[in-house]
Design a protein around this nucleic acid. Structure first.
Lengths: 192, 192
DNA sequence: GTCTATATGGAGATAGAC
DNA sequence: GTCTATCTCCATATAGAC
């Protein structure tokens, strides 16, 4: 099973994990080399732009994953409430139930923020829009849907911070339970 | 007005701001020197342990600020609901209504996590305990109080992430409004 | 207490053999 | 494609004059 030439896709999850563990600045090429089993020469063969191109590629892959597995599901489903619950499960799995941080969120709080600001903004904005779209179709007003989406996403992000700081992954599970509980309330609010 | 010898307290807010802007790794001694107007020699005079001691001192000062202005108020007040609202206002002011990040949260997501894990853990745990204490005295059950406190703190932290990533400070204001709205609900829940 | 060298290490990045 | 030098730069940290 010959690998296509210049196929760097299989490296991205490995590099992403180094970024998650050490941050952008802390992820040295030595660490990335260890994680991938490649020397610097090979790394620059795959990523001529160096570390910045690696981070770009990693962020792009993360964006694509969410696009396909979360955002598209939220936007496309004709059963928006089922889609919301399904994507929350997928989100929990992605973040390993609170044992894995959100690289995009971490980059937003670090000094890499300016470098990647466009991508960070798009990631969270797309997430908010997609979730709001599902909430609208489940009966919320547009304004209400946006607020609930924002609430859900910041609850998730905050829980990842707190779970990591306290070293209590359960914090994330409890936060996700609250998100699930609050979401369906929107339909009732509209019908009330 | 002679400054006491070896008084490094006035440096801490300046150094804290550099850490907030550039992260621990990104905050070089050159940047810190520029921010404080001191050369490296002077910096090592005040902080013989170098950058790590600076970060320790900064985290310690932040911890003290929250201890006095937030945690003590929450624990000590005989008007717990007023204390909750008052400390939320103080929190909003501290984070400049979403334009300033939480250094402790940022450290929790970066590779400095291990180095400062004890302090990070204590900060968030004390916050949770203090808020839960006030919530209990306002009528929540102990378990319920802990959950509500955890919810409030992760909402705040997540909103700081989101506000920074989206470059929309309003996200933080809206999150804090939701926190305020949810808190008093606890008493009703207990009486129900 | 402040500064200007300076030491030393590791970072990102490149060159070129294989 | 992969590797091993090697380059250059900037980081932390130190020494010692003033």
């Amino acid at each position: 099973m010959a690998r296509p030439q210049s196929d760097r896709a299989h490296l991205l999850p490995l590099i992403a994990e180094v970024f998650r563990d050490h941050g952008y600045e802390g992820a040295s090429l030595n660490l990335i080399g260890n994680a991938t089993g490649l020397g610097k020469g090979s790394l620059y063969h795959f990523f001529p732009g160096g570390k910045e191109e690696m981070a770009d590629a990693v962020l792009s892959e993360i964006g694509n994953w969410f696009e396909h597995n979360i955002f598209d599901v939220l936007r496309g489903s004709d059963q928006p409430e089922a889609a919301l619950l399904k994507t929350l499960d997928a989100t929990a799995e992605y973040f390993r139930s609170g044992r894995r941080i959100c690289l995009v969120g971490a980059f937003a709080l670090s000094d890499t923020r300016d470098r990647f600001s466009f991508v960070l903004r798009r990631y969270f904005n797309d997430w908010r829009l997609a979730m709001a779209s599902a909430l609208e179709r489940s009966g919320h007003s547009p304004a209400d849907a946006k607020l609930h989406a924002e609430d859900a996403i910041s609850s998730i992000q905050g829980a990842l911070v707190l779970a990591r700081a306290l070293n209590e992954a359960d914090v994330f599970a409890r936060a996700l339970d609250r998100v699930r509980t609050r979401l369906p309330a929107g339909r009732a609010a509209t019908k009330r």
